[in-house]
Amino acid sequence: MLEGKFETASTMKKVIEAIKDSVKLCNLNCSQNDGITVQAIDDSRVLLIALKLDPSCFQEFRCDKDLVLGLDLESLSKILRQGNPEDYLTLIAEDSPDSLLIVFEDSKKDRISEFSLKLMDIDSDVLTIDEMEHDCAITLPAAAFAKVARDMKTLSESLQILVTKDSVKFKADGSIGTGSVILRARTNLDDTKESILIDLNKPVNLTFGAKYLNDIVKATPLADTVTIKLTDKAPAMFEYKLQGGFLRYYLAPKFED
């Protein structure tokens, strides 16, 4: 039996909102040691989502037997919207489940809402992602990255990211004209989450689909900062850290044809 109780529903609500536009169906893997993990790839095989919610993400967590819960994320999102962000949220499943029980509790108002979501058999590819060597790692405010990704998408369907030891430059080249935004590395000791940190082994110049970057920044409400690891001619990794876990996106680059 699985029983995972979150102190607030907001984490799960934000996680599902962050991934449901990229993948429609996914398997939730549940185990006592790892908590809940998800790996899902979008239909175009360009963007991969890796979610880890350790048992420490939960107020209470037990999973007697490893479980795979196949979910339609649009349906899960409909149910998660029924609860308030500050409600307790508990996920419950039997050992051979055909549904997932989702319970919201508002202890102050003595309100308990229960929903049952039908599970599905989902046959999806799982990819082996090794810890990658990277040419550079950038940590910046998640909102600053989201603004660049959203703004530049209006100019071009591609966004070029150029990193040197003291700045990150985003460049868009579209039919109406061009644009660039430079963010300089800075350390803000008073407010460390406002810092822009660049750890550079080698300068990087990579181009990504603006549409996918806009899917990634849907995770912005989950964390103050995002860490981006880039390597020449390889997929980029975007990480939003959660308390006791993470939501990562792996995005394949674009190349000159």
Binding site: S158, T207, A252, E256
Partner: peptide, 14 residues
Amino acid sequence: QMKQASLLSFFSKA
């Protein structure tokens, strides 16, 4: 013209 790469060119199926 830029061409979009696939993740399958970088990661193998488990």
